[in-house]
Amino acid sequence: MTATAEKTDSTSEVGAVPTFTVTLRILRHDPEGLDGREAGAEYWEEFTVEAFATDRVLDALHTIKWEQDGSLAFRRSCAHGVCGSDAMRINAKNRLACKTLLKDLNPSRPITVEPIKGLPVEKDLIVDMEPFFASYREIMPFLMTTGPTPERERLQSPEERARFDDTTKCIMCAACTTACPVFWTDGQYFGPQAIVGAHRFIFDSRDEGEWDRLEVLNDKAGVWKCRTAFNCTEACPRGIEVTKAISEVKKALTSGEV
């Protein structure tokens, strides 16, 4: 509903937000086989919507779902780039629909929207995220310590904090993992996000489980599968230097030092 409210507000207040017509070409997947389709049918469908220059791809998807075809399925929650629900392949690249402005995509041509690649599609733009979350669980993404719990908080210097600051920003959208050519062809690979998640704890001075995690990542499904294609870094909507994090984990494994 925010999107509609925004629209009326911005038109009345600013008055001059330009509008344009844009076509979205969506790769749909129909698990049930409605309207005479086979169950599991995949097909491209085009929708044309009127959009404001301030609209994002998510706004266009909302317009389609609310005004043209209620059966279109996609995930979203926050609509502001923090929950990580709406990673999708927009014009052949992974991005968050809620952070991608239509006007930045050359709206004179149809904009293609597809589900992220490498995870099983459930319906339209919704994929089964379970394999992705399972890899995240493998690296034990929680604080591991020994000894008695201190009475006050565990202190850390700004320098110690800076070592893993970048990887704390992850919102688990899977844009990185499903942009990875190794992940597409090798379902065993943990994928970049699990390594980012591990990095966040491995380089945290308060955590003592670094070698447990490094051991998991030293596995053949782990960090050595990375071929430095940089698709993850380029796809990350949080601007995390994903390949750099992976590289730091590789270095910790080869040097034996964290």
Binding site: K117, P181, R227
Partner: peptide, 22 residues
């Protein structure tokens, strides 16, 4: 019969990965 998805639009790094393996 599923339609062809688009080719992922990766950049230099992705293409060089392909070149290196080939």
């Amino acid at each position: 019969m599923s339609p062809a998805p688009t080719l992922y639009r990766g950049r230099e790094g992705m293409w060089m990965w392909l070149v290196h393996r080939t």
